[in-house]
Amino acid sequence: MSAAPRSPLEGHPPTSRLRLAEPAPTVSGSGAPKVVAEGVPTAVRPDQQTGDGRYPIAWLTITAPRGATPTATSICACGRNLFAAGHHKALALIEGHTRHRDLCPLRTHQEGAAA
């Protein structure tokens, strides 16, 4: 009264003859596998999208949905992480973020090294 064992994929018959994949023959019929498509350079070229060495240090995020309380977040890689909610507090945080750009130890160090 036991049922016959099912294959792992229902509805598909079990495969009894397994074959390894073989490379397709080339146009010339030699059977050698084609490694690279024609016209494709094989040498690795340097990345054309490399940056100029600059990267973001500070982020200012402002959210002001219509009819809701505006918020602002000021985050800097030096450890500054401030949040303000409300119109006046958000404006004050935006001004503080602008002032921090001149006082941040990460920015002043980079500008002094370039000079």
Rank of each mutant, 00 (worst) to 15 (best):
L93D: 02
G112E: 15
H109F: 15
H100P: 02
L91C: 10
P70V: 01
A90N: 03
H88R: 14
P33K: 03
A3D: 11
L103C: 06
A92P: 01
G31C: 00
G51Q: 02
L60F: 04
D47R: 09
S74I: 05
T63W: 07
A72G: 01
E38R: 10
E95A: 14
K89D: 13
A72K: 02
L91E: 10
R54Y: 14
L60V: 01
A77S: 12
A84V: 04
S16I: 13
R17C: 07
I75S: 14
A68Y: 05
V27I: 12
G112F: 12
A114V: 13
R80N: 13
T15P: 09
V44L: 13
S30T: 09
R19M: 08
Q110Y: 15
S2I: 10
A115G: 12
G11Y: 00
S16A: 14
I57Y: 08
G51S: 06
I75P: 06
Q110A: 15
Q49F: 15
A114D: 11
H97R: 06
L103G: 05
L18R: 13
G112K: 14
A84W: 03
S74Q: 10
V35W: 09
D102E: 12
H100Q: 00
G11N: 01
R54C: 14
I94W: 04
A43G: 09
A68T: 06
C104T: 04
N81K: 10
T63M: 07
P25L: 05
G11C: 00
V35G: 05
T42P: 03
P8L: 02
R54S: 15
N81A: 11
R17L: 11
E10S: 08
P8Y: 00
A72I: 01
H97I: 02
D102K: 10
E10L: 09
H109V: 15
S16F: 14
E22Y: 05
V35F: 08
G29H: 02
N81G: 03
R19Y: 09
I75A: 14
Q49D: 13
R66N: 10
I75H: 14
P13E: 14
A32T: 07
T69R: 11
S28T: 09
G31D: 01
R101N: 14
T73W: 10
H87D: 15
P56G: 08
T98L: 14
P25H: 05
R99Q: 11
V35H: 06
P105A: 01
H97G: 05
E38I: 07
T73G: 05
G79E: 05
P23I: 02
P65D: 00
G51T: 07
V27H: 11
T61H: 09
A77I: 07
R45K: 08
T69L: 10
H109I: 14
L106F: 11
A64D: 06
C104V: 05
P70D: 04
M1W: 08
R45C: 07
Y55H: 15
D102Y: 11
H87K: 15
A114S: 13
G51H: 05
A114I: 11
R54W: 15
I62P: 00
H12Q: 12
R99H: 11
L18N: 09
L93R: 01
N81Q: 11
R66Q: 13
G31I: 00
L82I: 08
A84E: 04
R6V: 04
G29R: 01
L20Y: 12
R107K: 13
L60S: 03
P14K: 00
R19I: 06
